[in-house]
Simulated assay, not measured.
Amino acid sequence: MRKFFVLSFLLILFLCLCSIPKGYAKEIPDIETKVKNGHVTLKVNEKGDEYKFFKNGAPVYEGDSNEYSDDVSTIGDKYKIGIFQKDKLKKVVTLNVSNDLGEKALNSSEESYAEDLMAYQIQNGHLNVIADAESVQLSWDELPDKDGVYEVYRDDQKIGETTNQEFIDYPCEIR
């Protein structure tokens, strides 16, 4: 069974980001993520004048500090971080943070263990997205599968395959 990553929501994000001057955001930022006892600290190691942190879609911090700390929900949280320089959006980083206090046990039913494991890992897995004006870098948790091939889709169109747990797309390039 092949794994599918539908990237249609990223197209809209990139249409917006493609208008950012190409002089910005050529390197992928280094985000330090530390989770301990259900608490997360995120530190952006890329220079910016202002940072905006969003947790599960809601704004949680806006200011000049490149660090943010908070409690992680039981099932984990999705963060988006906007890095601004000279009042212009330089880069957007999206990442998922899992809680380290333990995960739910697999729910055994009529399905086989392998199917339960796959369903559990898809439901609880994380897709991390780092987007800038030129590219989208995806990384994800490993999913158990016989062929080990991940198919990557954008707008319901297959754009690539990989056996790695990462993929870089350049949606603004002419294919």
Rank of each mutant, 00 (worst) to 15 (best):
K34F: 07
T162H: 09
Y113R: 07
G148Y: 08
S98F: 08
L15P: 06
G125V: 07
S73Q: 03
F9R: 15
G125N: 12
T162Q: 03
L95A: 09
N45P: 09
Y153S: 14
E62A: 08
V40H: 02
V72A: 02
G82A: 05
P144E: 01
Q165V: 00
V149L: 11
G76F: 14
N96T: 13
K47P: 12
Y120N: 14
E151S: 10
A119G: 10
N66M: 00
I83M: 05
Q121T: 15
E62L: 06
H39T: 08
S109G: 09
K80Q: 03
N164M: 06
E46C: 01
N128Y: 03
C172T: 04
G160T: 02
F9A: 11
K26Q: 15
S98T: 04
V40F: 06
F54E: 02
E32V: 14
P59L: 15
S112E: 04
Y51A: 04
D87A: 13
V93I: 10
Y61G: 05
A58V: 13
I83P: 10
G38F: 06
A25G: 15
I122D: 14
E166P: 05
Q165G: 14
Y120H: 15
K88I: 07
Y170F: 08
L17R: 00
K158W: 11
L127P: 01
P21I: 01
E50D: 11
I159K: 09
L117G: 08
H39Q: 12
